[in-house]
Design a protein around this nucleic acid. Structure first.
Lengths: 233, 233
DNA sequence: TGTACATCAGTGAACGCGCGTTCACTGATGTAC
DNA sequence: TGTACATCAGTGAACGCGCGTTCACTGATGTAC
């Protein structure tokens, strides 16, 4: 009944009885619910309502509630990956390869945190519920971005190869933890400037903890953008 | 009706119509629900059921569902604080004050992560929902444990005083993130040994990022327990 | 020490809600001939 | 190109569920005299 006004994308001709792209429309709607209210806000009925369709129709495309949630989760992970990848691509070239490698690590981390703030509900959804095979792929992809940035840190002599194994867990923990603390409000209702300082602080600390290679010394305290105190700028 | 069999603690004489400690009993029951199923599993009815009492009775002690949740949250934060404090007290004395200060920081962090693993639901509850004034106190207390451990790091010359401001956010983020990734399963279903390595890895990285003071150098790579690679032990 | 009575802390039935899911159904679409 | 019919993708009513919350109630407790 509300069909003709609320459905925003309709590949088939308007007024058509069939939606034509209902599965994607439902995932998109559910993702918006997750964005607004977290994983708990994702219901079959609400998603169907948002698309302008009966809840029953959703069962043509999903086995049930859990299946919908898994699809949103996969979608959330993909969006996260794309956000991070696009930010990394936009890092300007540098003369100094060490500076470039550092900037890349800094940027993956910042991309992750910014995604969490921008897409609160999606972020929480991406880490919710037991994994489904389908949703592992994009998480692995995002993880790969970090892994290759860390490899570059070693190649360039900034990080001691002996510290490379499992270095991912350090960056991921720090960045995931900060993002969680910010969006759950545990860090208090801090203003934007303080929050940006905190983000810089954490990323700089992660990089400082990696600075164990032969070429790390000159960067350890000289580049204020990356390793120094933002307060002294 | 199930009153006489399921209520586990009853300060008044058995068979009494009045419970006598219902408020506390409900909080405890709700905390167990949170432990088992996270914040979403905490309902007025389920808590009342667990205590063996009508849901209506809960409204004598709580304004409603939200109020119960706030009480559980406060309880979770208190338990976290106590777990951390008791672990810190058990750190053995050291000849070298620097080693002791390092061990203290290491221990607050490990205590936090171990609490998260041991009390999964409580941990999640402690960081759920907008803050209530009542629940701020114990979070502030736990934060204070970290703050004083970091102060000691400066006093002892391990950390440059210029790095002290907001240093909490680094340790808290890293440790909160690791804990979250472990209990949400995002780090994969890793075995206990790998998990312990990861914990050590993260804590060592946090400490390495703090190692900017005049007396930090000797500890930066010599003490394998604290700063080195657990894999080389 | 005994009694009348106010108050406290429960009961149990009922409400409306949104949810997941199922059912029999029907209009729209695509295809074999 | 036209038509018959199978199949696809929706509808709308209904179910049972657990939830939060309210209501009038009643048994237990404490206290003034």
């Amino acid at each position: 009944m509300a069909k003709s006004e609320s459905a925003s994308k309709r590949p088939l001709r308007a007024g058509s009885y069939h939606h034509g792209d209902l599965r994607n429309a439902l995932v998109r709607a559910a993702a918006e619910l997750a964005e607004a209210g977290g994983p708990g806000a994702v219901t079959v009925r609400a998603a169907a309502r948002a698309v302008g369709v009966t809840a029953t129709a959703a069962y043509r495309h999903f086995a049930g509630h859990e299946d919908l949630l898994a699809a949103v989760k996969a979608q959330a992970q993909q969006t996260l990956f794309e956000a991070m990848a696009s930010q990394m691509k936009s890092v300007p070239a540098q003369d100094d390869p060490v500076v470039y490698a550092i900037a890349q690590v800094y940027t993956v981390g910042r991309g992750y945190i910014e995604f969490a703030q921008r897409e609160r509900g999606l972020f929480k959804t991406a880490f919710y519920l037991p994994e489904k095979a389908a949703s592992q792929h994009h998480q692995a992809a995002a993880f790969g971005l970090l892994a290759s940035a860390l490899n570059a840190l070693v190649d360039v002599g900034f990080m001691d190869p002996r510290h490379r194994p499992e270095a991912e867990v350090v960056a991921w923990s720090a960045v995931h933890g900060l993002a969680s603390l910010i969006i759950d409000g545990a860090l208090g209702d801090i203003d934007e400037v303080t929050r940006d300082h905190a983000v810089h602080r954490v990323l700089a600390a992660v990089l400082r903890s990696y600075a164990t290679g032969p070429h790390a010394e000159p960067y350890r305290s000289t580049d204020p953008r990356v390793m120094g105190e933002p307060f002294n700028e």
